[in-house]
Design a protein around this nucleic acid. Sequence first.
DNA 1: TCCTGCACCT
Length: 727
Amino acid sequence: MHGCYRLLFHSSRLHLPENQPTLFVFPFRSCSVLSPKTFDRKISTNSSLVSAFYDLHLRSCNNLYSLEQIHSNLATTGLLQHSPHLSAQIIVNYSKFGLLDRARALFDAVHANRSFLWNTIIRVYATSGHVDEALHLYSFMRPTGIPPNNYTFPFVLKACASKPMLRLRRGRGLHCEALKTGFDLDIFVQAALVDMYAKCGEIDDGCQVFDGMLEKDIVSWTTMITAYEQSTHPQESLLLFRQMQAQGIGGDQVTAISVASAIAQLGDIKTARSLHTHVIRNGFRGHVEVGNSLIAMYSNCGDVKSARLVFDGMKERDDISWNSMISGYSQNGNASDALLLFEQMRVHGPESNMVTALALISVCSHLGSLHLAKQVHSLIVSWKVDINTLLWNSLADMYAKCGDMDSAVQMFHDNRTSTKDASSWNVMISAYGLHGHGREALKLYQQMRAQGIQPDDITFTSLLSACSHAGLVEEGREVFDSMKELTMLPMAKHYACMVDLLGRAGLLDEAFDLIAEMPSEPNDAVWGALLGACRIHGNMKLGELAAKRLLCLEPEHTGYHVLMSNVYAASTRWHEVGKVREAMRDRGLKKPAAFSVLEFGREVHGFHTADQFHPEHVKIYGKIEGLIAEMKMKGYVPDGSCVLHDVEEEDKEHILKLHSEKLAVAYGIMRLQDGLPIRITKNLRICNDCHVAFKFISQVCNRMIIMRDANRFHHFQDGSCSCKDYW
DNA sequence: TCCTGCACCT
């Protein structure tokens, strides 16, 4: 402390402490109460030193009390009026404490007649979310006789970029003014223009500005690379990154972050690895943000192990690092690792936030575990944070996917925020659809319209799929036609839903005609829906046609191969089944392993087909034998067409017994108290035989079985299923 | 006379 004073006094050459800021700032920062008064008395004769002293304090000011003291000292000595620089510092500091009103009061009081101060207050408003006020002040500059300069434009453009829907016109106007004043040649203004156009969705205009730049620095390139990435043009983003490197500019850590996001969108693991090498070579690894984006990049490429290696290798981790890693596990279906990491976060990591909550909710939705869902919900409530609409919607979706429609409805009603929007309604419409309640979905849609909520493309996808799952063909047609009345052009996904709806109902020719009518080229979802319908109704000819198209569009999609082999198997065309399998083998595709999860209380049990790892598997197989014997007395006949191998009937029956969902149900009956429903989640579609068997079991054992498969919920009770065998 | 400025992560 004393050493610092001495330095200030004894060095006559000392002006601003910029040369060695840490030497000066550090001792002052540790001073809890300022001593400017004592200091004033000693050196108030030298005004430039006084300014330097206050400047120093303002730079390191971290509590409001000190700030107020400095403010009042400067005001009483009259220094404030003559030092716009100190005023600006105080204005910025007030905004750091969220005290925009005080910042503004000071700005007004000093009769700011310098562009510099106007720029400062505009920047403060623009960066603290008060976009309108920033633009408002800007429009007053010129009439007040203050000319905007090259510093002004980036601030105002930033304000426009943060409210893209409303501000594009204003942004274009600013571009004109920059052109007129010649500031459009300033490299900072240009980067801000590119950014503004891109954030307002006008990437081409941004590109034009970029191409017109005579000189480009790292930020110019990065801005354009980011612009492409954020407008979901990852290929262009990468191309530009390579062009930049070809010109001998390597990019900095910000560039690496944007490129990582672009690669995440592409999901290309090879490019991901080469970027990782680039990051290591250039020494960007130490930046937390870089590490975070690498985690997200690897997770999106499906390589969660590499993501974890990055996470473990980070010297510093923030809340985003933890959330990214938890989300990464969740996205890749790695529920237990996600939960484990969350537990570690609670012990060693930063505090959880909304994003953590969303990741946990996604884990529950994926698992379909109601028990876990309730725990996560009460955990979020205990955080005592305001639940926003996104979180309400996710909670409703989670409960619906965990089979608890009542709680889902509750979440929908509990959300009383004014931002309840189309997506809130969409969640509920698709929730009803998931449970086969098509009529409720339609009813909800009517209510939505009555409340004046504008439906979007997702509303119609959810509605059509709800109709499809409930077999409401006529209603589905009406919904589809009503899109045109609302001047909404049906997209490929809507056609896919319609093909699914008609196809399931056996109207295969009508479905095919609809595809022919499509204004755009049918995509894989459309042909996939047709192929699925062909499987249900055993139409091999049309199925082959659909499969041919599909394999051109998505040759690597395992599901479509499996679907086609199902079509052949259902018609006992074993030779063709073999061919499809061969094709899959040649491409290195594997049918995903069936997996069913049964939960009760705090326990979660997972079963693979013919599982022998479960500690009680012998007992479980015994239970299945007993159940089948009982069911056969009531008329159950095993459905061998579900077995996709060319084997003897007897073997088929044996294979059927070992399906993962049957193991799970048998174990549920063994362990769960009478009267309690058995809740099961399966990663694939439930097989026909299991569907028949569960109806019998629900009767024989007088049990409710609630099963979520890859497509929807089935509630088995008293010998029938809520899907009315239509799925 | 100076001082202010552009790009990034769930």
